[in-house]
Design a protein around this nucleic acid. Structure first.
Lengths: 221, 221
DNA sequence: TCAGTTATGTAGCGATTGATACATAAACTG
DNA sequence: CAGTTTATGTATCAATCGCTACATAACTGA
């Protein structure tokens, strides 16, 4: 099982990490092959031999991102003892990751390919699926909270998961726009302030009236 | 003051609208000049004579977007009688805009140029400034609520504005990922459920402890 | 009628895009 | 050693990128 042929001259893992950093900073369409080969310190044939094509390299870069920079979400949801603490830890740890000095601000999976040309739709859909998986994992964690008793039965776990995922995704935009860590954390605190209200049993919930059609006349002070 | 020279053969406003739709759907870097001229029904020289260059056309398209599709935010903040109703209306109206059939889902200003190549940094910064203006307008509306008495004095209007702006921006990602209007509205309801807690006077606020460093041991059910 | 002015269509600019052909280099096996 | 296999560097490829030169068309005012 020994390696055949001429051995690779560069460190594949290190080169992949460089590629990830460039994609994270500039996005998929904003990164050219020239940008990649320069950052990775290799020539195009080496890149194609080792990674296949630009899109395949990007997918590997996303996988690396998930396993390293983006691992806070999974570990928070897994390790926290209650659903509430899991959500709070997930948001807090991601805030720390989004505002880490020396690294691109915000989440690569949220930012690197929101829109794009039709020929890059595969990339956009791939990231969308990654985002959906995060939301699903959050919802499962909430449902586990219902089973374990720290979240009341009847809680709308799907809505709750969608809400906190939305906040998480919005935080990436805020981080890219230059919001410092303290402000991101303040946003998280605001989001967590809704927890008690959102996990109140439906029958005695107070502030859950819909905002789609205000029933009563506005109170003018 | 009559017009000199050969008159323009195409409708400039209509062509700009077509350009806006393409940018909205594919983003700045995902849209080529060929895409634009095809959608606008004109040839490159006409585009450059009428709009200058790709970036100038994009900025005009953004301005058109703000004046039409994105006008809900401004009108909601201006017309609602209380700050709370203003925020609720802003979120609700934007949800309706984000999930409007036949139009690209989500907000163009949030999605069209999150990341990009260094040479397109001007475009990204321009959109970031647009987003900051929305957040500033929201904060001013909250401060008006403090003055008019429907928001308690001492409320952290900056944090509140950042929070609801974050939700608004996250909703664009959710919309692009295919969330139907009902789910987007459910997210808005979750965000509004935090209002009472966030506008409670600071001294008797209950759930405002920071999540940065949990002080007490987790409660295990 | 005739400059002067502006818009249009054709055709193509230099540069860059993602991706390769090809000869050579460096390892292994026999 | 020869033969096989794989990686590397050079030097591109066709296609597309954003953009424009140029001749002509269609209007104005004098």
């Amino acid at each position: 099982m020994a390696e055949r042929g001429r051995p690779r001259k560069f460190d594949r893992a290190a080169a992949l990490r460089r590629a990830m950093e460039v994609f994270w900073e500039r996005g998929y369409e904003g990164t050219s092959l020239s940008d990649l080969t320069t950052a990775m310190g290799i020539n195009p044939p080496s890149l194609y031999a080792a990674f296949g094509c630009k899109e395949a390299l990007f997918r590997e870069a996303v996988a690396l991102y998930e396993a390293t920079e983006g691992s806070a979400t999974e570990s928070a949801l897994r390790d926290a003892p209650t659903a509430r603490e899991a959500v709070a830890a997930m948001l807090r740890d991601n805030v720390n990751a989004y505002a880490c000095p020396g690294k691109p601000p915000g989440c690569m999976i949220v930012l690197a390919a929101t829109l794009g040309a039709p020929e890059n739709k595969g990339v956009c859909n791939y990231l969308a699926e990654c985002r959906r998986k995060v939301q699903d994992a959050l919802q499962r964690r909430l449902e586990r909270g219902v089973i374990e008793g720290d979240v009341p039965a009847g809680t709308d776990t799907a809505a709750l998961a969608a809400f906190y995922t939305t906040v998480l995704q919005g935080l990436s935009i805020q981080a890219r726009d230059g919001a410092p860590r303290a402000r991101l954390q303040a946003i998280v605190d605001c989001a967590m302030a809704a927890w008690d209200q959102l996990t109140r049993p439906p029958n005695r919930r107070a502030g859950s009236r819909s905002t789609t059609a205000p029933k009563r006349k506005a109170r003018v002070p």
